[in-house]
Deep mutational scan, measured.
Amino acid sequence: KKSYVLIKVKNPKTKETHTIVVPEENLEEVLKALASQPNVKVVDIERFP
């Protein structure tokens, strides 16, 4: 059974918020990819039960 993680990201320029759902096993690479985006800020990470 896969567990999923909900990542909320915000664009500081446009103030838009997006929610991305990723499998927990991919969380680290997704966070690394997001960290390299200049106008993306991770605001929240939630685990799915």
Rank of each mutant, 00 (worst) to 15 (best):
I20W: 14
V30C: 07
S3K: 08
K13W: 14
T17S: 06
L27R: 02
T17F: 12
V30M: 10
V21Y: 11
T17Y: 12
S3E: 06
E24P: 04
T19S: 08
S3H: 13
I45V: 07
V21T: 06
E25W: 07
V42A: 02
N26A: 09
V43M: 11
P12N: 15
E46Q: 14
K13I: 15
E29R: 14
V22R: 01
T14M: 03
S36V: 08
V22N: 00
T17K: 05
K15G: 15
N26H: 12
L6N: 03
Y4M: 05
Q37F: 10
S3G: 10
S3D: 04
V21M: 13
N11D: 07
L6T: 04
Q37C: 14
T19C: 11
P49I: 10
Q37G: 04
N39S: 06
A35M: 13
K1F: 13
P49C: 12
L31Q: 01
K10A: 09
R47F: 13
K2Q: 10
A33R: 12
V9E: 00
F48S: 05
K1N: 09
I45A: 02
N11K: 03
P38D: 08
K41E: 13
E24I: 09
K1W: 12
H18D: 04
V30D: 00
V5K: 01
V30K: 03
A33T: 07
I45L: 04
V40F: 11
H18Q: 06
L31G: 00
S36L: 14
V40R: 05
E24V: 08
P12E: 15
T14D: 03
Q37R: 14
E16S: 07
V5I: 05
S36Y: 07
L27K: 02
V43P: 01
R47Y: 13
V40Y: 10
V9Y: 15
K13V: 13
P23I: 08
K8Q: 04
A33E: 06
V22H: 01
V42L: 04
K41A: 08
K32R: 13
T19G: 04
L34S: 00
N26P: 00
A35H: 09
D44G: 14
S3A: 13
A35V: 05
F48E: 04
K2A: 07
V5A: 04
S3W: 15
L27P: 00
K1V: 09
N11H: 06
K8V: 08
P38I: 07
A35I: 07
I20T: 01
E24Y: 10
V30G: 01
K32P: 00
K32L: 11
E29M: 13
H18C: 13
P12L: 15
F48R: 05
L34P: 00
V5L: 06
K8L: 11
S3C: 11
Y4N: 02
K13H: 12
V5R: 02
A33L: 14
P49R: 06
I7A: 00
V40H: 05
K2P: 05
K1R: 11
P38S: 10
P49N: 07
E28G: 08
K8P: 00
E46F: 15
S36R: 14
K8H: 13
S3R: 13
E16M: 11
K32M: 11
P38V: 07
E25Q: 06
A33M: 13
P49W: 07
D44M: 14
N11G: 04
V9K: 00
V22D: 00
E29Y: 13
E29C: 11
V21P: 02
N39I: 03
K1G: 12
Q37S: 09
V40W: 13
D44N: 14
E29F: 13
K10W: 15
P38N: 07
K41C: 14
S36E: 08
P49V: 11
N26Q: 12
Y4E: 01
K13T: 10
E25T: 05
V5M: 06
I45D: 01
P23C: 13
L27H: 02
N26D: 13
S3L: 12
V21R: 07
T17R: 06
A33W: 15
I20Y: 15
K15P: 03
V42F: 03
L31D: 00
A35L: 14
V5D: 00
K2T: 08
L31T: 01
E29S: 10
L34I: 07
V30T: 08
A33D: 05
E24G: 04
Q37P: 02
R47I: 11
P38K: 10
V42K: 01
T19L: 10
F48G: 05
S36F: 09
K2L: 08
K10D: 04
K15M: 13
E29K: 10
V9D: 00
K13S: 09
F48N: 06
Q37M: 12
I20S: 01
P23V: 07
E24R: 06
I45S: 01
E25D: 08
T17G: 03
K10V: 13
V21W: 14
T19F: 15
I45P: 01
L6I: 09
V5C: 05
N26G: 06
E16T: 09
K2I: 10
I7C: 01
I7V: 07
E28S: 08
A33I: 13
K32Q: 08
P49F: 09
L31C: 02
L6H: 07
K1I: 11
H18P: 00
V22Q: 01
P38T: 08
V43Y: 06
K1C: 14
A33C: 14
E16L: 10
A35K: 12
K1P: 12
V21N: 03
K41F: 12
K2R: 09
E29D: 08
V42E: 02
K13N: 09
T14P: 00
K32S: 07
N26W: 13
Q37I: 10
P23L: 14
N39L: 06
E28W: 14
L27F: 05
K8Y: 15
V30I: 08
N26K: 12
A35S: 09
T19Q: 06
N11T: 04
K1S: 11
Y4P: 02
L27C: 03
N11C: 10
L34W: 03
F48D: 04
E16Y: 12
E46I: 14
V21E: 04
F48T: 06
Q37K: 11
K41I: 15
V21H: 03
E46D: 07
L6M: 11
V30H: 03
V42N: 01
L27S: 02
V40D: 02
N39M: 06
E28C: 14
K2W: 07
P12G: 13
K8N: 03
E46K: 13
T14I: 02
P23S: 10
D44C: 13
I45Q: 02
K41D: 09
P23K: 09
I7Q: 00
K13M: 13
F48I: 13
K32G: 04
Y4T: 02
I45H: 02
K2C: 10
F48M: 11
K13A: 08
R47T: 06
V42M: 03
N39T: 05
D44K: 12
A35F: 13
P12T: 15
I20Q: 02
S3N: 08
P23W: 14
F48A: 07
E25H: 07
P12K: 15
T14H: 04
